[in-house]
Amino acid sequence: MVSQKVVIQNPTGLHLRPAGILCKTAMQFKSSITFTFDRTTANAKSVLSVLGACVKSGDEIEIKCDGVDEQEALTAMVDAVENGLGE
């Protein structure tokens, strides 16, 4: 398992469009991908789970990847968040 903390950059947080982009990125990998925020763990491959975490701009999340392609998955997820998730 690998993990990394990252700050949400986009100004509106993880609303529907960026949550969809985050999920689309996560679903490209076989690894289990979750993130934790404020004592909540969300499945990064589920839009409803991501939206339910109520992550706002400037919040720090910890992305955790576990599986055969965990390092590639973590790199892609962190890059997606740092690039603003399409916004």
Score class of each variant (00 low, 15 high):
S49L: 02
T41S: 01
D66V: 01
L51V: 11
K30H: 04
F37P: 11
D66Y: 03
P11G: 03
I61P: 00
D38L: 01
M27Q: 09
G84N: 15
K24Q: 14
K24T: 11
L16N: 13
T40Y: 04
S31K: 07
V7W: 01
I33R: 05
G86N: 13
K56S: 06
T75D: 09
E82R: 15
I63C: 02
S32D: 08
G20K: 04
F29D: 00
N43A: 03
E87L: 14
E82M: 15
D79M: 13
P18G: 12
S57Y: 09
G13S: 07
A80W: 15
M77V: 13
A26W: 06
G86Q: 15
T41A: 01
A26G: 06
Q9F: 05
G58L: 07
T75F: 13
G86I: 13
T75C: 12
A42P: 01
A76N: 13
E62V: 06
E60W: 12
S31G: 05
L22K: 03
C54R: 13
K56R: 08
F29K: 01
F37W: 09
Q71W: 07
D69K: 12
V6I: 10
Q28L: 08
D38R: 04
T75H: 12
A80F: 14
E70N: 08
A44F: 06
I63N: 02
A73E: 05
C23P: 04
E72C: 09
D69L: 09
V7Y: 02
D69T: 12
E82I: 15
L22D: 09
V6G: 07
F37A: 13
G20T: 07
V68P: 14
T25D: 06
A44K: 08
D66I: 00
K5G: 01
G84K: 15
L14C: 04
A53V: 06
V55W: 06
M1E: 00
Q28I: 01
T36K: 02
G84Y: 14
C54Y: 14
A53Y: 06
Q9T: 13
S49G: 03
N43H: 04
V81L: 15
E60R: 13
I21F: 03
G58P: 08
S3T: 00
E70C: 09
L51A: 11
E72Y: 10
G20W: 07
T34F: 00
V7C: 03
S46P: 01
L51D: 09
L16D: 12
S32N: 05
G52A: 08
N43I: 01
I33D: 00
N10H: 10
D69E: 10
G58K: 07
L14A: 04
V47N: 09
A76M: 11
D66H: 07
K45I: 05
G58T: 09
I8K: 00
S3Q: 00
D38H: 02
T41L: 00
L22F: 14
L16H: 10
P18L: 08
I21P: 02
D69V: 11
L85S: 14
T41I: 00
E82W: 15
N10I: 08
G84Q: 14
N43R: 03
K64W: 03
E70A: 11
M77A: 11
H15V: 11
K45S: 04
L74N: 13
S32T: 08
S57R: 11
E62F: 02
L85D: 13
L22Q: 07
V47G: 10
Q4I: 03
